[in-house]
Design a protein around this nucleic acid. Structure first.
Lengths: 114, 114
DNA sequence: AATTATACCCAATTTTCTTATGTATATAAT
DNA sequence: ATTATATACATAAGAAAATTGGGTATAATT
C-alpha cells in the first residue's frame, strides 16, 4: 500500500468506508478510486487488497456478486448489515486515534481548530 | 500499543518527535508521557517500545547514556544528527498520510478547514 | 508483436505489533 | 510481614498486516 510504511491497519476502514459511499464496488475499482482521490500518492497493492476483502467477507462484513463484463469477470462487494455497523465503529476508532496522535505530536494542537 | 490495531508504523515517529521536544528521555518515561498526553487512551507496551528504541539506535538515529538513579538503572536516549533529520522526514510522511486518509474517508474534507 | 490496462488470485517474506515472561529495586497497602 | 503496585530494563513466541514477486486471462494501445 503506497510507498510509506504507516498505517498498517487502516486498509479495512478505507474499504468499508468506500463501500458505504458507493453501495457496490469491485477490487480493481477500489485501487483506482484511492489512487484518484489521493492523486497517486496512495497505491493499494493487490497483495494487500484481495486478502483484506476475503477476510472482511469471511467475517460477514461484505457479500459478493460475480458479474461478467466484456468477457472479464468482476467480483462486486457490498456491505452487509454487520458491515454497515462496522463502518461507524472503524471510523470512530480512526478519528480517535488521529486525535490522540495529534495530542502527542503537536503540543499546540487543540480539538476543533484547523 | 494501546487497544487498537491502527498505528502500526507511527511508533517510531512518536519516539523521535518526543525526543525532539525533550532532548533526552528514557524508555519508561516515554510510555508515561504518551499515556498522559492521550489521557490513557494510547498505551505503549514495553514489548513494542524497547525493540523500537534498539532499532532506532542501531540505525544511528539515537544515542544512549546509562545513568544510575536511586539504585535503579535508566537508559537515556537522545537524537543524533541523523535522528534530527529523520524527525522532519517522518513528520512530513505522517502529515501527508493523514491528509490522504482524509481525502479518502471524508469527501467533504478540504485542506485548511477544521 | 510487445506493452499497458483491466481483473482476479496466492505464497514467501518482512515488519510491527501483542502477549507473556524474566530480572531487579522501591514504595504503598493489607 | 507479605503482597501488590510502581519503576525500569529486556527478550521470545506468535499474530496481523503489509510488501514483493509471482501466476492466469482478456482487451486495448503502441
Amino acid at each position: 500500500m503506497s510507498n510509506n510504511n504507516l498505517i498498517k491497519g487502516s486498509l479495512q476502514t478505507i474499504i468499508l468506508k468506500l463501500l458505504e459511499e458507493n453501495d457496490r464496488m469491485y477490487g480493481y475499482e477500489i485501487t483506482q478510486r484511492v489512487k484518484e482521490l489521493t492523486e497517486g500518492e496512495i497505491k493499494i497493492t493487490e497483495g494487500a487488497l484481495y486478502p483484506a476483502l476475503h477476510k472482511l467477507e469471511a467475517e460477514g462484513m461484505l457479500t459478493t456478486e460475480i458479474q461478467q463484463v466484456d468477457n472479464r469477470v468482476r467480483k462486486y462487494y457490498s456491505l452487509t448489515k454487520d458491515g454497515q455497523k462496522e463502518v461507524s465503529a472503524k471510523m470512530s476508532e480512526l478519528q480517535s486515534f488521529v486525535g490522540n496522535l495529534q495530542r502527542i505530536l503537536d503540543p499546540e494542537w487543540k480539538p476543533g481548530l484547523a
